[in-house]
């Protein structure tokens, strides 16, 4: 065997090993992508299904984010809808009241700049971009208090923008909901 042939043989070996490794790498990646898709459909959060727009400077005049409509409402099907806004430098309602063990839809938007809602210890995490409405499904297994900081820089008071979420028992929530209006735990 000449030196040149040996060279060619070893090049082929190298190419074969590489191909094997590349195949392996592709399998890893495809596996991960499938895992993510499966988890998304069956047990975790999914991106909001629609893009909805709104005018941030007129939220308080009409539409679903007027002051009297902010807070939690028990829908006829037993689900709960929470409407909230972020603004420099607070959330309204500043304390969100929700029941445990109930499918909840959070609908929120920003009245001025980009904010974010993050409920610590949960998967609830969404941006509030002025002009657009954010929607996220939530579900709390346990009652208790959660912190809800703003997670995006929103100018110089950002460090003071912390809200709260209070999860209470399902029946207690239903009791409070009887009186109508929108619920929150502000001032409690």
């Amino acid at each position: 065997m000449s030196a040149e042939e040996a060279h060619r043989d070893s090049a082929e070996v190298a190419a074969r090993v590489e191909r094997r490794w590349a195949t392996f790498a592709v399998i890893i990646i495809v596996g991960m992508a499938l895992l993510a898709a499966f988890a998304g459909i069956h047990s975790a959060t999914m991106p909001q299904p629609r893009v909805e727009t709104t005018d941030p400077s007129r939220l308080h005049l009409s539409g679903e984010f007027v002051e009297s409509n902010l807070g939690s409402v028990l829908e006829t099907n037993g689900n709960v809808t929470v409407r909230a806004i972020g603004q420099q430098y607070s959330f309204t309602p500043a304390c969100i009241l929700v029941p445990a063990d109930t499918p909840i839809t959070l609908r929120a938007t920003s009245a001025d700049v980009v904010h974010g809602i993050l409920i610590q210890g949960t998967n609830v995490n969404t941006m509030l971009v002025p002009g657009y409405i954010s929607e996220q499904l939530m579900h709390f297994a346990k009652t208790g208090d959660y912190l809800m900081p703003c997670q995006e820089f929103c100018s110089f008071g950002h460090e003071g923008m912390w809200g709260k979420v209070k999860v209470i028992d399902k029946t207690e929530f239903a009791d409070r909901a009887k009186s109508g209006g929108r619920l929150s735990c502000v001032g409690q």
């Binding site: 893009v51 909805e52 727009t53 308080h60 539409g63 009297s68 409509n69």
Partner: peptide, 20 residues
């Protein structure tokens, strides 16, 4: 982008600011 469906909000109790 879609415009939001009209939502029936409860009456405001008392007058609130209408300034933009």
């Amino acid at each position: 982008p879609q415009r939001t469906a009209i939502v029936a909000a409860p009456e405001q109790t008392g007058r609130l600011s209408e300034v933009v």
